[in-house]
Structures are given as structure tokens and as C-alpha cells.
């Protein structure tokens, strides 16, 4: 077996002098060429986890513990220079809102050329030629003209394609996508997801994909990790997680989904209560206050990760009871 491209061990990230624990003991392994999706409610620490892989959280205000290895290198030990050479070349990121994530006063072409020339000694003309290829690759129509457009002159979908082209400019091994489709309308969302899937297969990319949307996660990822209050509460193959979720939070998420493979007549339910205050987490399971199955031991100790089956694990001591709670789903292909 080859070494994983990403290996995160017991990652803890805190802000505001340790008061806000945004990430609280995350373990994550990603194989080469694999795509995983990280899902969970707003504020559960998905973006912070993703940004930690490139050390993009504001350095001075962030406290990081644990270890992060990407492509065999210890990310937390890198010098500023090493980090700059690493970002963009080994790992790159696609942001949720490309209009905000691109510099408004440079054309998208200039921004791609800049990224290429930052990491490789090539002429401006050669870099532009490559930018043009990338634009064709992500299927931007009239790529020559679009290279000279400013971000605000492109449509949302086109902008996200340009952002993907930028992320791929230096042939990274790992692509981090932070809700790349949330800002787009439904039809464009699907096009972008299919594009990502295709690029992943063709280029052998490894992808970590953050989303709110389970449907999108299933579309892109082999494996899904569910995050709640800074912890991974359940992980498994996309198929298993949809068919047989074992953590009450995952079940709640599936039940609250507005569209998709819910059986006819199944009720749409919201998870009761609100996400916890990260500055004031309960000592036991952080989902316990909202959990219909919570019992006394849940509130006392932090639950361990329980193997439900070979490829599926849930951080819950009531997985058996949870199995009976799982939503009735129509069998999907």
C-alpha cells in the first residue's frame, strides 16, 4: 500500500487564545487519487480543517496542535519559504465565492500566469499558453477572450471554472474544495461537480471536498466524513453512509434534506436545537443535548469511535439504537 497523501492526527485548532475550539481532535487519512467529502452544519469546523492543511488560518491568532502530513511532509514544521513553495504546487484550494477569492484588479489570465511563474521558471508567453490550455480543460468557451476578463466580468459558473483552472495551474497532487458550488445555481452546480469528478479521474488528483449538501458529497466523493462541533462523528463510504447511517447526527442530517432519495411520505425533519457554542462545549458527546437517543453515559464521557463495519465508524455509543432510527430510503444504484 502506498503512503496516504494526507494524514491528519489529532488535529486541534483553537482561536481567541484557546477559547474557541473550532477543531477538536480530527483524524483524517486520504489515499492517493481518492476523493472524500467533509459535511456538517455551518460552524462545525470544516473550513478551518481544510485551511489547516495549507496553514491558511491567521497564523498569529490560531493555536494548532496535532500533526498534519501532506505528501510525506510535515506541514506544521515548514518554514515560511517552504510553505510558500508548497502552497499551490502540491496543494491548492478552490474557494466558495470566486468573486471574493480572486483579485478584482487583475485579469483571471494574469492571476493564473502569476501562479505558474511563482512556482516554475517559464516565460510569460509559455505561462499564458498553459493558462489557455487550462481554460480549455475546464471548458470555458472562447478561452482567449476570457483570459483577459476581470473576475467581475465573468458569470458565476465561468468564474468558478476559472478558479478551478487557477487551482490546477501548477499540477498539484491535492485539491481542497471549500463549498465550490454553494454560490451557484442548481444546474451550474451539477456541471461543476461533474467537472471536478472528471478532473480527479483524469489527473489522478486527491480531493477533499467540503459541502453542506449530501447530494453533492455523494456525487464527488468515494468516502464521506461527517463533522460536528469540531469532531468527525461518522465516516464511511458514500454508499454506506447514505443507506445505513449509524450516528444520530448523520441521521438527522439525512432526514433534514429537502430533496433527494427520501422515500415518499417520509417526513422532513429539522434537527432540534442549535449547534453548540464552541467556547463552551459539554464534557461528553457534543451532540448529546440535541440527540433523541442520549442517555446518561453520553453526557459523561467523550464517546469513542466505534467500528460499525469494516469501512464505517461512528463516534457514538448508541449505534445499535440509531440503526432503528435511520430514515427509510429507496434503494439507490
Amino acid at each position: 500500500m502506498t503512503t496516504p497523501i494526507v494524514s491528519i492526527r489529532n488535529l486541534k485548532v483553537a482561536f481567541a487564545g484557546g477559547a474557541v475550539r473550532a477543531v477538536d481532535g480530527v483524524d483524517l487519512d486520504l489515499g492517493r487519487g481518492e476523493a472524500v467529502a467533509l459535511i456538517g452544519e455551518s460552524g462545525s469546523g470544516k473550513s478551518v480543517t481544510l485551511r489547516s492543511l495549507m496553514r491558511l488560518n491567521p497564523e498569529r491568532r490560531t493555536r494548532v496542535e496535532g500533526s498534519i502530513t501532506v505528501d510525506g511532509r510535515d506541514v506544521l514544521a515548514m518554514s515560511a519559504r517552504e510553505l510558500a513553495d508548497f502552497r499551490g504546487a502540491v496543494v491548492s484550494m478552490i474557494f466558495q465565492e470566486p468573486l471574493l477569492a480572486l483579485d478584482p484588479v487583475y485579469t483571471v489570465g494574469q492571476q493564473i500566469v502569476e501562479a505558474i511563474r511563482r512556482h516554475e521558471r517559464v516565460s510569460r508567453a509559455a505561462a499564458r499558453e498553459r493558462a489557455l490550455d487550462l481554460f480549455r480543460r475546464v471548458r470555458i468557451p472562447s478561452p482567449e477572450r476570457r483570459l483577459d476578463a476581470y473576475p467581475h466580468e465573468l458569470s458565476g459558473g465561468m468564474r468558478q471554472r476559472a478558479m478551478i483552472a487557477l487551482a490546477l495551474a501548477c499540477r498539484p497532487k491535492l485539491l481542497l474544495a471549500d463549498e465550490p458550488t454553494t454560490a451557484l445555481d442548481a444546474t451550474v452546480q451539477i456541471q461543476i461537480l461533474l467537472l471536478l469528478r472528471e478532473l480527479q479521474r483524469d489527473l489522478g488528483l486527491s480531493i477533499i471536498f467540503v459541502t453542506h449538501d449530501i447530494g453533492a458529497a455523494v456525487e464527488v466523493a468515494d468516502r464521506i466524513l461527517v463533522m460536528y462541533a469540531g469532531r468527525i462523528v461518522e465516516e464511511g463510504t458514500a454508499r454506506d453512509l447514505i443507506r445505513a447511517p449509524r450516528h444520530p447526527y448523520t441521521i438527522g442530517l439525512l432526514k433534514s434534506r429537502a430533496h433527494g432519495a427520501l422515500a415518499k411520505g417520509a417526513r422532513l425533519e429539522a434537527i432540534p436545537g442549535a449547534p453548540p457554542d464552541l467556547a463552551n462545549l459539554p464534557p461528553g458527546c457534543s451532540f448529546a443535548p440535541r440527540c433523541p437517543l442520549a442517555i446518561e453515559p453520553c453526557r459523561a464521557d467523550r464517546p469513542p469511535l466505534v467500528a460499525v463495519k469494516e469501512s464505517q465508524r461512528a463516534r457514538c455509543i448508541r449505534t445499535e439504537a440509531a440503526a432503528t432510527l435511520a430514515p427509510q430510503l429507496e434503494p439507490t444504484g
Binding site: 495549507m54 502552497r87 499551490g88 491548492s92 477569492a101 480572486l102 478584482p104 502569476e114 511563482r118 501548477c170
Partner: peptide, 11 residues
């Protein structure tokens, strides 16, 4: 946010 984007490119 674009400054984070620039850092992510390796600038």
C-alpha cells in the same frame, strides 16, 4: 478573502 487566495497560490 482574495489575500487568502493569493497565499494559497504560494505568494
Amino acid at each position: 478573502e482574495f489575500v487568502v487566495g493569493l497565499r494559497a497560490k504560494g505568494l
